[in-house]
Design a protein around this nucleic acid. Structure first.
Length: 656
DNA sequence: AACTGAGTTGTTTAT
DNA sequence: GATAAACAACTCAGT
C-alpha cells in the first residue's frame, strides 16, 4: 500500500487546536499533507461580506499559516484560486492525492458544495474523511435525536443533546506536521463567473482574486486587502487563533466573570471594554473551537466555590443557542433563511418583502419596494440616521466595528421589524450579514426570526423602547456620545430624546435637531423619523392580526400569493392605515377607550392548525378592507421573469 | 384534554 | 432607588 497523500481542506476551521478533522488527517500517517484553502467565488462575489469581515478572515488565515510553518517550515496554508467544485478533480490528479479531509459544514450552500466535491472525489478514487468540529453536537445528529425535526427551543437542544451523550473534550494541537508534496499546478485555471457580484460595493479598487491559480507570485500566498480591491477595514477587532487563545486565557483567568456570567444582565452600552467575550467571530471562523471554550468554562464552573450561573443564561448556555440554530438550519436547508416555503416561520406581511425565484422557491437577494416610506425607514436605519440616538449609535457601531452587543442587536432588530418600521426581517439579516465580523448564517437568521417573532419566540407584545431600554444601563448616554458625536454635549435628560431639547439648549450644545440627517456635517442631528409610541401600536396591531390569521411560510396561500385576501387594511399596520383604527389609536391618554375597539376572534391555536392543514379558510370576523393592488407584493414577483442561471453555482442565492 | 407555569434579554406605574 | 404588579397575551412542556 502506498502511503497516503492527503489534502486537508480548511474552511470554517482556521485553527490547529481541537480539530477532530485535522487529527483524522494526521492519524492517516500521511506521506505528505497539503493544508489548502480554496478561494471560493461564492464567498468572493455572492455572499455579502464587508471589509471588516474580509480582514478578519485574512487575519485568521495568516495566523494559521504562520502556525503551520512553525510546525513545518516547508508548509503553510496554500491558497488556490479556483472554485472547489472545478479545482479538486485537477488537483487530485496533479498531486496524486489519496485522501481529502475536512470539517463538516451544514450551511445550506456548504452542503451542496461539499456533496459535489465528495462526488468528484469518489469519481477520482479519492477517499473523503469528514469530521464534526464546528458545533458542540453534530447538527444532523441533533436533528435526528430531536425526532427528525429542526431544533426550535433550547429545551429541545438540551434533551436531544442528552441523548447524544457528553460533549467531547478538546484535542491538543499537533506538535508536528508532514511535508507537503510537490506543489506544481500545470493545469488550466477555470475562472469563475464574476457576475452577479454583490460585493462590488465593498471595493474601491480592482478585484484580482483569480489572477492566477497560485497567486501573482506563484507561491500560493494569501491575498492582501489591496489585492482584493477592498475598502479599508475600520474595526478594532482582529482575528487569528493566537489572539483567540490569548483572549480565552484572559477570560478564564477571571473566575467570577466566567462562572457567574448571565447574558441578559450584561450591558449593551459597554464599549471599553465590552461586556461580553467578543469570541463569537473567532468561533465563526473556527479560530477558536467551541468545545475548547465549553470545557475551559465548564472546568471553572465545576470548581467554583460560589454560586455559578446556569444555562441558558450562562456562558456555556450561549453555545447551546448556537447549536440550536445550527440544528434548525441543518433540518431546513435554504428554506431556513427565508419566510417563503419555511414551515417554521410565521408569515407576517412585512414591507420590503424578498423577491422569490419561483423556479427554485428561493429568495433572490433582491426585494420589492412596496412602500416608499418603509424604504426610507430602512435606509435611515441602515445608515444610522433614524433620529433615535440609541438606534443610530448601535448602527454606526455595527458599521464601524462589525460588532454590537447581543442586546443591541435585539434593539435594532425589534425596531426595524415588529417594533417600529414593520420591515421584513430578511432585510435586516442581510445588513447584519454584510457588516458583522461574527456573522454566522444560522445564528443570524435564527436571531432575526426570534426578534421579529416569526420563529423561536412569540411574545411580540414585549417591545424594546429606543428610549427606555438603554437607560437601564447607561443613564448618561456615554455610549450614544461615543458613536453619535454630534450629541456629545447634550444634557443627560435629552440624550435619548434630543428632539425634546429646547432650541436654546440645542444651540448651546452645538447641534440642531433638524432634517433627516442625509447631508449632516456634525452640527445637526435628525428629527426622529416617526413617533415611536404611535408606530409601536401600529406594529403591535399588525402582529396581532397576522398571528390570528396564523399563516406559516409553507402555506399554499403564502406560496401562491392568495394570502392577501386574508389581510385587511387593519392588519397591515404600518401602511397608510386609512381604513382602519391603528393609526388613530393614539397612546396613553386614550388608554381606557383603547381596549374596547379591538376585539379579535380568540383562536390562534386553531387558526394555526387550520392553516397548516390549509383546508378551511381562516378570516378575521370583521369587514375586510383588502390590500390595495399597488401594495401587492408576491403577485408582482411571481410574474417576474427569472434571471439567467449560473450553471456552476445553481444556488448562489446567499442567506444572512 | 384542559390546565398550569415557564420562557436567557419589555415598559410603565405604584409602592 | 429598588421591587412588584399590571399591561395583554404567545407557545411549549409537563401534569
Amino acid at each position: 500500500m502506498p502511503k497516503p497523500r492527503v489534502i486537508y481542506w480548511f474552511r470554517t476551521d482556521l485553527r490547529l487546536h481541537d480539530s477532530p478533522a485535522l487529527k483524522a488527517a494526521l492519524d492517516l500517517k500521511p506521506e505528505c499533507l497539503y493544508p489548502i484553502w480554496t478561494w471560493d467565488p461564492h464567498y468572493v462575489y455572492r455572499a455579502r461580506v464587508g471589509p471588516n469581515r474580509w480582514r478578519y478572515l485574512l487575519d485568521c488565515q495568516n495566523d494559521l499559516s504562520k502556525s503551520i510553518t512553525r510546525l513545518n517550515p516547508k508548509s503553510k496554508l496554500f491558497l488556490i484560486r479556483e472554485a472547489p467544485q472545478t479545482l479538486f478533480p485537477k488537483l487530485f490528479k496533479a498531486w496524486k492525492i489519496t485522501h481529502l479531509v475536512f470539517e463538516k459544514d451544514t450551511d445550506a450552500y456548504a452542503r451542496e458544495r461539499d456533496d459535489k466535491v465528495m462526488k468528484l472525489a469518489e469519481e477520482a478514487g479519492v477517499q473523503v474523511i469528514v469530521k464534526t468540529g464546528r458545533t458542540l453536537y453534530d447538527p444532523d445528529e441533533l436533528v435526528k435525536q430531536n425526532h427528525g425535526k429542526p431544533t426550535m427551543s433550547i429545551s429541545q437542544v438540551q434533551s436531544a443533546g442528552k441523548r447524544i451523550g457528553s460533549i467531547p473534550r478538546p484535542i491538543p494541537a499537533p506538535t508536528s506536521l508532514p511535508d507537503p508534496g510537490a506543489t506544481d499546478v500545470t493545469f488550466e485555471q477555470e475562472k469563475p463567473e464574476e457576475k452577479p457580484d454583490i460585493n462590488s460595493i465593498q471595493r474601491d479598487g480592482n478585484e484580482a482574486s483569480y489572477s492566477a491559480l497560485a497567486g501573482p507570485k506563484g507561491d500560493f500566498a494569501l491575498p492582501t486587502m489591496e489585492e482584493l480591491g477592498l475598502k479599508e477595514a475600520t474595526s478594532s477587532h482582529r482575528g487569528g487563533e493566537t489572539l483567540a487563545l490569548k483572549t480565552l486565557d484572559e477570560i478564564i483567568a477571571n473566575k467570577d466573570y466566567t462562572a457567574t456570567f448571565e447574558k441578559p444582565k450584561t450591558a449593551p452600552t459597554a464599549f471599553e471594554p465590552q461586556a461580553t467575550t467578543l469570541l463569537s467571530p473567532h468561533m465563526h471562523f473556527g479560530s477558536l473551537s467551541c468545545r475548547e471554550f465549553y470545557w475551559r468554562v465548564q472546568d471553572v464552573v465545576d470548581s467554583y466555590k460560589g454560586k455559578a450561573s446556569q444555562p441558558p443564561t450562562s456562558l456555556t448556555g450561549q453555545l447551546l443557542f448556537r447549536d440550536m440554530y445550527f440544528g434548525a438550519q441543518a433540518a431546513l436547508g435554504y428554506a431556513f433563511g427565508q419566510t417563503y416555503n419555511n414551515p417554521q416561520c410565521r408569515f407576517i406581511p412585512w414591507h420590503l418583502p424578498s423577491e422569490i425565484d419561483t423556479k427554485t422557491g428561493l429568495i433572490t437577494g433582491k426585494y420589492l419596494v412596496d412602500d416608499a416610506r418603509a424604504e426610507e425607514y430602512f435606509i435611515r436605519w441602515k445608515e444610522g440616521r433614524t433620529g433615535f440616538p440609541w438606534i443610530d449609535a448601535l448602527m454606526r457601531q455595527l458599521k464601524q466595528e462589525g460588532w454590537i452587543h447581543h442586546l443591541g442587536r435585539h434593539a435594532v432588530a425589534c425596531f426595524l421589524t415588529r417594533g417600529g418600521c414593520y420591515v421584513d426581517w430578511e432585510r435586516g439579516a442581510e445588513v447584519f450579514e454584510e457588516w458583522l465580523i461574527d456573522h454566522e448564517a444560522a445564528c443570524n437568521i435564527g436571531n432575526w426570526q426570534w426578534l421579529s417573532c416569526t420563529a423561536f419566540f412569540a411574545q411580540f407584545f414585549r417591545c424594546y423602547s429606543p428610549i427606555a431600554f438603554p437607560q437601564k444601563w447607561d443613564k448618561d448616554g456615554e455610549f450614544v456620545r461615543r458613536y453619535v458625536p454630534e450629541l456629545k454635549d447634550f444634557g443627560r435628560k435629552y440624550i435619548y430624546e434630543p428632539w425634546k431639547a429646547p432650541i436654546s439648549d440645542q444651540k448651546k450644545w452645538g447641534c440642531r435637531i433638524e432634517g433627516d440627517g442625509k447631508d449632516a456635517n456634525g452640527t445637526t442631528y435628525p428629527k426622529p423619523m416617526f413617533d415611536f409610541p404611535e408606530r409601536r401600536d401600529i406594529c403591535l396591531n399588525g402582529m396581532k392580526s397576522a398571528y390570528h390569521i396564523g399563516l406559516y411560510g409553507n402555506d399554499p396561500r403564502v406560496l401562491d400569493g392568495t394570502w392577501r385576501k386574508l389581510f385587511d387594511d387593519h392588519a397591515e399596520g404600518p401602511t397608510e392605515g386609512k381604513e382602519g383604527p391603528p393609526g388613530a389609536m393614539v397612546k396613553h391618554e386614550d388608554a381606557d377607550g383603547a381596549e374596547s375597539h379591538d376585539e379579535q376572534p380568540p383562536s390562534p391555536k386553531t387558526a394555526k392548525k387550520m392553516a397548516v392543514k390549509s383546508e378551511k379558510k381562516v378570516a378575521p370576523k370583521k369587514p375586510a378592507h383588502k390590500r390595495e393592488a399597488s401594495q401587492s407584493t408576491l403577485d408582482s414577483m411571481v410574474t417576474r421573469k427569472k434571471k439567467k442561471d449560473d450553471d456552476v453555482f445553481p444556488n448562489a442565492t446567499h442567506f444572512g
